[in-house]
């Protein structure tokens, strides 16, 4: 089963609905659950970085996520959920992120309009081969973004995007993944990415 963390901010149910659509067994959880049957975790996030960090921790879901990472259960952060994986964000410099991925989240610079609320193309940053997240997707696929901040491009970046300046659109480090875009709102392309993540979780759990 895939669990989708629901720490009470905004519409966090879309990812769960998208997973159900692709045939995954997915549940929205608002408090920590027993991880024994959990094959993967999706951590969405909207609103401000600081509010998300606070809500994640006060719901107890933050420690569940950290425990899952220790158990090598695959984790996918979406939008602010991806940003939470980093050390911190310019948006709320006083609040540390989970620090699971090296790097920082910064305000979008050089763009005429912020937030970036649009479909944008991402470019793969391949390390030998393209990330399994993008399997069966064409080069330079389109995804839907809504954000004012984004992570720096680092060694863990597997797809980058340009909006005013370049930023990390997707990240992969061990069993930790993140997308700055919303796969659950990116029509068929996004559903394919979620399906790739789900299949990865299934493969990993069966080993």
């Amino acid at each position: 089963m895939i669990v989708v963390t629901d720490y009470g901010i905004g519409n966090l149910g879309s990812a769960q609905k998208a997973l159900v659509r692709i045939g995954a067994d997915a549940e929205l959880v608002d408090q920590p659950v027993d991880l024994s049957g959990v094959t993967g975790i999706i951590m969405p996030g909207v609103g401000s970085f600081g509010a998300c960090v606070t809500a994640l921790h006060s719901s107890g879901l933050g420690s569940m996520v950290m425990k899952a990472v220790d158990l090598e259960i695959p984790l996918l952060g979406i939008c602010v959920g991806m940003q939470l994986l980093y050390k911190g964000s310019e948006e709320s410099p006083e609040v540390p992120g989970l620090g699971l991925i090296d790097g920082w989240v910064r305000r979008l610079e050089g763009a005429p309009k912020v937030p970036n609320m649009a479909w944008n193309q991402v470019e793969y940053v391949n390390k030998g081969e393209k990330s399994f997240l993008f399997e069966s997707l064409p080069n330079d696929p389109w995804f839907y973004f809504v954000h004012s901040y984004a992570p720096d491009i680092t060694d863990d970046t597997v797809a980058k995007c340009n909006y005013g300046s370049g930023f990390s659109a997707a990240v992969s480090s061990k069993n930790i993944f993140g997308t700055q875009f919303h796969p659950e709102k990116s029509s068929g392309t996004g559903l394919k990415l979620l399906s790739n993540f789900f299949e990865y979780c299934e493969r990993k759990a069966s080993v």
Binding site: G13, S14, Y144, K185, S187, L191
Partner: peptide, 8 residues
Amino acid sequence: TAQKVFIP
């Protein structure tokens, strides 16, 4: 709608 539509 949210169960069947995957655009914003």
